[in-house]
Computed example of a mutant assay.
Amino acid sequence: MPGTEPSTVPLIVDVDTGIDDSLALLYLLASPEAEILTIASTGGNVPVAQVAANNLAWLELCGRPDIEVTLGSPAPLTDPLRTTEDTHGPQGVGYAELPASTRSVSARSSAQAWVDIARDRPGEVTGLVTGPLTNLALALRIEPALPTLLHRIIVMGGAFHHPGNTTPKAEWNISVDPEAAREVFDAFSAAPADRRPVICPLDVTETIEMRPEHLRRLAAVAGSTPAEVISESDPVGTRSHAANPIVRHLSDAVRFYLEFHRDHGQGFLAHMHDPFAAAVALGTVDYRARSATVDVELTGTLTRACTVADYYGMWGRPFNADIVVETDPDEFFSSLVDRIGHCARRTPFG
Score class of each variant (00 low, 15 high):
Ile230Tyr: 06
Ala193Trp: 11
Pro192Ser: 10
Thr126Asn: 00
Phe160Asp: 10
Leu133Phe: 08
Ala227Asn: 07
Arg217Ile: 04
Ala118Leu: 02
Pro147Ala: 15
Leu146Asp: 11
Arg182Met: 03
Ile117Trp: 07
His162Lys: 05
Glu179Phe: 05
Asn165Met: 01
Ala145Lys: 09
Ser189Thr: 12
Val155Asp: 04
Val198Trp: 15
Glu171Tyr: 04
Thr134Gln: 12
Ile153Ala: 05
Glu124Trp: 02
Phe185Pro: 00
Gly131Ile: 04
Arg141Gly: 09
Met156Gln: 15
Ile230Thr: 06
Ile154Ser: 13
Glu171Met: 06
Val198Ile: 15
Ala193Glu: 11
Ile153Val: 07
Leu215Gly: 11
Arg182Cys: 03
Ala159Ile: 13
Pro197Phe: 00
Thr126Pro: 09
Ala181Trp: 03
Cys200Ala: 14
Val115Gly: 09
Ile230Asn: 00
Pro144Asn: 14
Pro144Thr: 14
Glu124Tyr: 03
Ala219His: 04
Val115Thr: 14
Ile142Asn: 01
Leu140Gly: 14
Glu213Trp: 00
His162Met: 05
Leu138Ser: 07
Glu143Asp: 11
Asp203Glu: 05
Ile153Arg: 01
Arg182Asn: 02
Ala193Gln: 06
Ala118Cys: 08
Ala159Thr: 03
Val236Leu: 10
Ala139Arg: 08
Phe185Ser: 00
Phe160Ile: 07
Ile154Gly: 02
Ala222Asn: 10
His151Pro: 07
Gly123Leu: 08
Phe160Met: 12
Glu124Asn: 02
Val176Asp: 01
Ala219Met: 08
Asp194Ser: 07
Pro235Cys: 06
Trp114Gln: 00
Ile208His: 05
Asp177Glu: 00
Ser231Tyr: 05
Leu149Tyr: 07
Glu209Gln: 15
Pro147Gln: 09
Ile142Pro: 02
Ala193Phe: 02
Ile199Phe: 09
Ala191Trp: 04
Thr148Glu: 12
Ala227Ser: 15
Phe188Asp: 00
Arg216Ala: 14
Ala190His: 06
Val229Ser: 05
Glu232Phe: 03
Leu138Glu: 12
Val115Asn: 13
